[in-house]
Design a protein around this nucleic acid. Structure first.
Lengths: 174, 174
DNA sequence: GAAATTACGTCAGCCATGTTGACATATTAC
DNA sequence: GTAATATGTCAACATGGCTGACGTAATTTC
């Protein structure tokens, strides 16, 4: 009962890594990794009176300078009201600045201020170091597998957008 | 500027997958995967008036039948007050039952009721299917890499406990 | 050029889930 | 018998989701 899930007896012929036990391991690893991955930035943010939601906003604005509010909403998948709370605080405290869109002046293009970049670096450093260590210890092949599986966990509709992001982001500077 | 992070110029000699761009990709994949991974169970839970915190409790109690409150706290890394709220609701609504520890009668060993098991199956099914599909599409080698890297992301102190969990859980039934 | 749509913002209130701090009760350990 | 441990509880607070309603400016459509 612990090794094969068989509501239809159908998975019996599947590869060994699809046993119920292994799938649960996959679930738990994701939980534990996420739990610890967020803990360091959370501690830094707490001292500044900010939270994880601020981190996410800062991160993606830093990543995609000049991003619009709608685009950011599509990434975070939260309501505009939730984002607004976070964003207006970040603007008010000088981490993010807005400028009207050139082609479409309704848009408020978002970018980090120097202060924002500073915080972004500080927050991301801990996570980058953590990832770098894990990558280094696991090796190139494992990294490829990590990417492949995580990408497969993402909703299909989203996957394309993200792939475009990831590939295109090197040139999308400024 | 986009391909090598060099505050000390030190990372230049490192393998290709340690470029800033790749590390950020690793960060983002984790964010996106987690975001989508939790969305389906969240929707089910919402209909029952429960939340993600309930899911976590149910999941780990199901996984480790007879777990103590302290052990559960150590896994979730939240305060006992936070857990208590969730747990007492789950007990009251008949998803979880408690029995005093045999050796130590201060302990309240936790286990799922039939109703709890039912819900656990329902919640975990969506995630298990998601993982299974991703695993299948990525292949055995990628799965090994996924595990390796995620394990590397976990705090060192925790890693051992978790490894013990993961290995030992097949025999820890009832 | 008027009307509809879009991008964004805001007010108000609700809920889930995390936190701290203080205190209570059983049980076990020394 | 006293101290420590396992658990629970009350109260108050913060964060960050949510819904619903409404407002403004700019763009698009006809």
């Amino acid at each position: 009962m612990a090794d094969v899930i068989s509501p239809g007896g159908k998975l019996a012929a599947n590869p060994i890594f699809l046993r119920d036990e292994d799938l649960r391991q996959g679930i738990e690893l994701l939980f534990y990794a996420y739990r610890d991955f967020t803990s360091e930035p959370d501690a830094i943010l707490a001292k500044l009176g900010l939270g994880r939601a601020h981190h996410r906003a800062i991160y993606f604005v830093g990543r995609h300078a000049g991003i619009t509010v709608s685009e950011l909403l599509a990434i975070l998948k939260i309501t505009k009201q939730s984002l607004s709370r976070v964003l207006s605080q970040l603007v008010q405290e000088g981490y993010i600045q807005q400028r009207p869109g050139k082609r479409d002046r309704r848009q408020r293009l978002l970018e980090l201020t120097e202060k924002g970049k500073e915080l972004e670096r500080q927050l991301t450093r801990t996570q980058r170091e953590r990832i770098a260590r894990a990558y280094r210890e696991a090796g190139a092949e494992a990294v490829a597998g990590y990417r492949k599986v995580l990408l497969g966990l993402i909703d299909e509709t989203e996957r394309r957008k993200i792939l475009a992001h990831l590939d295109g982001s090197a040139k999308a500077s400024g």
